[in-house]
Design a protein around this nucleic acid. Structure first.
Lengths: 334, 334
DNA sequence: AGCCCTTCTGTCAGCGCTTACAAAATGCCG
DNA sequence: CGGCATTTTGTAAGCGCTGACAGAAGGGCT
């Protein structure tokens, strides 16, 4: 089923069919009707590949995410999708699962698809990939990978500031020994977040911290907590890298009959919906995911009216949200 | 950047470049090396649109999901993705958010992309869309929409049986007044699941049930629970349409200081990871999501060796998983 | 050296669509 | 009714790639 068949049936040329398809330029009303009828009768749908090949553009934006299962990423994705759709763009998504080979192949896939713009919401980015991206001339937005350059926007969350707020708050509650539940991906060599924790703690001499990490999942949070608690270090508060791992931590603590927040305070990060629904509701740090999604779309899917935004860097400031998982440090055990 | 430029640089014809790209047929080793070098130097990535246009096939399978945010769907998606990748297929996903216009446009999008196969994991399907799908000659697998036909496989979960198990179990614990927390999408006209509950309850004369529904989210589960409890009906157990809404229900009950399972039993459905991690851990019904994903991929992404599976219908039998959110019915309140 | 078979490479016609550009149809006016 | 501006339609050249086919190289044999 192709343009030509539709054209034949409507007794017009393929160009005319193309015109009504793109409701571009002028087509006499009677002709248009005829064509539309033919299209419907034949249940014709234009071959998108041919279209973007011929048109030289794709009106598609690509989104690469490390872990769409984490609602934090999902919320961003969803915002991008609905914004993009509103502007007449399609979205194609690739989930890397924190695996770097997947990142590589996803990026190449997106380049191969000649996407009009690419959002990389991943936690690592090899320099060679950056080079490839540069070559491709595709506008790119990164989330938190920290390398603004021409044609590339970077959205950075001031994680450092968020962690400081958490640490200060816990300190004010009397906590002195803190645990940090991270996840593999951000405990890599260039580990902004881990450093943020260390630095925040280092500001306050009386504070002590120990970290453990696992996958960015419920189970991972639980495992890391288990690992941390079996080292002999006895924290009175657990700072979790995000809400999901925090819920995993809660589970492990429950198993060990460690009361939260009576015996142990726990904090999350992101302020995902689940953080209100778990028990106890998590004290966490809010990151405006929808705003991030909007910004990304503004950069990648320009509307007819205004041009694409092109700030090299956007910084987001996070905010502490107090709920029930934190409380005063228990007295030192007798 | 295109084939021709690479060809020129490697001093060969475009056909040869194409050949090394598809590592098809024979290319002299020295030539291959030269071409590979040119490709790398130029950071060339084939235009996928041109490729599938010329080749007439796409090696891409489409997945349409109502709500990827629900881990149940996500797990299926993830399995499909990794299976497909293993067989050399790409996956494109569309999330409909339970909105029928989105379903329509997603299906057309997939047809337009000429996907090699399509998985529809959605809860409704207008007959006209089925007709369009038929026309397109794309192999399709439905999850639980109940319309096997030529070229279309349907995977059905024996929800009826699962619900019966839940109802019987609650009945055996002494519960007589049951609440059902559904969600909009499945409370539509053809509502298999709602009927399943009604029928399961109808088998046992002493049982009574009342239902409420909202979105398929944490918040939706909470709202529906609130609505149900404010009708004056006083159930001692809540059957939730899935684990996510069940977690929403738990939250509302906590707010009302209704103890689970002391004052109220709660059951979920799906046995999503979260159901073990919430508090109290949910009694639920296990549905083998990975198995579903594998079956889907077997139908849509045939491997060189064996041909695609084409059973018209596959039925999955669910199993009860007992955890902490259910217990004996409280004595009648004095 | 001449022949034939094999291996390798090049040529070229599409795939289904868009988009100048050209051609045809229409409308308006004097 | 001819002439011209305007609207509407058709023609055809690609877009970047694949794949059938044909042609060129190379090798072994007599």
């Amino acid at each position: 089923m192709n343009l030509e068949q539709v054209a034949r049936r409507a007794k017009v040329s393929t160009a005319t069919v193309s015109r009504v398809l793109n409701n571009a330029s002028v087509v006499k009303n009677s002709t248009r009707t005829r064509v539309v009828k033919a299209i419907e009768e034949l249940k014709y749908y234009p071959n998108l590949h041919a279209r973007s090949l011929a048109g030289g553009k794709s009106r598609t934006i690509g989104v690469i995410v490390s872990n769409l299962e984490n609602p934090f990423f999902f919320d961003i994705y969803k915002t991008i999708e609905s914004d993009a759709r509103g502007r007449g763009y399609e979205v194609v998504m690739a989930n890397t699962d924190y695996r770097s080979e997947q990142l590589v192949s996803s990026i190449r896939l997106m380049i191969g698809r000649r996407v009009a713009g690419l959002a990389c919401i991943v936690s690592e980015m090899a320099p060679e990939l950056l080079a490839e991206l540069d070559q491709s001339h595709i506008p790119v937005v990164f989330y938190d990978v920290g390398t603004p350059r021409p044609n590339i926007t970077n959205i950075r969350v001031n994680y450092r500031r968020g962690i400081e707020k958490v640490v200060d708050y816990l300190h004010s509650l009397g906590h002195r020994k803190l645990g940090f539940i991270g996840h593999h991906a951000i405990l890599g060599p260039i580990n902004e977040r881990m450093k943020a924790v260390m630095d925040a703690v280092a500001r306050i001499p009386s504070l002590e911290v120990r970290a453990a990490a696992d996958a960015d999942t419920l189970e991972g949070g639980r495992q890391a907590t288990r690992a941390l608690l079996s080292t002999g270090f006895e924290p009175t508060a657990l700072i979790c890298v995000n809400d999901i791992t925090a819920v995993g931590a809660l589970r492990e603590l429950r198993e060990r009959h460690i009361g939260v927040p009576r015996d142990m305070s726990v904090t999350g990060f992101d302020n995902v919906k689940l953080s209100e629904f778990c028990y106890p509701a998590l004290t966490t740090v809010h990151i405006p995911r929808e705003r991030i999604g909007h910004i990304i779309c503004d950069c990648l899917a320009p509307q007819p009216g205004k041009p694409a935004a092109t700030d090299p860097e956007v910084v987001i400031d996070p905010e502490l949200v107090l709920r029930d998982s934190t409380g005063p440090a228990a007295r030192a055990t007798p």
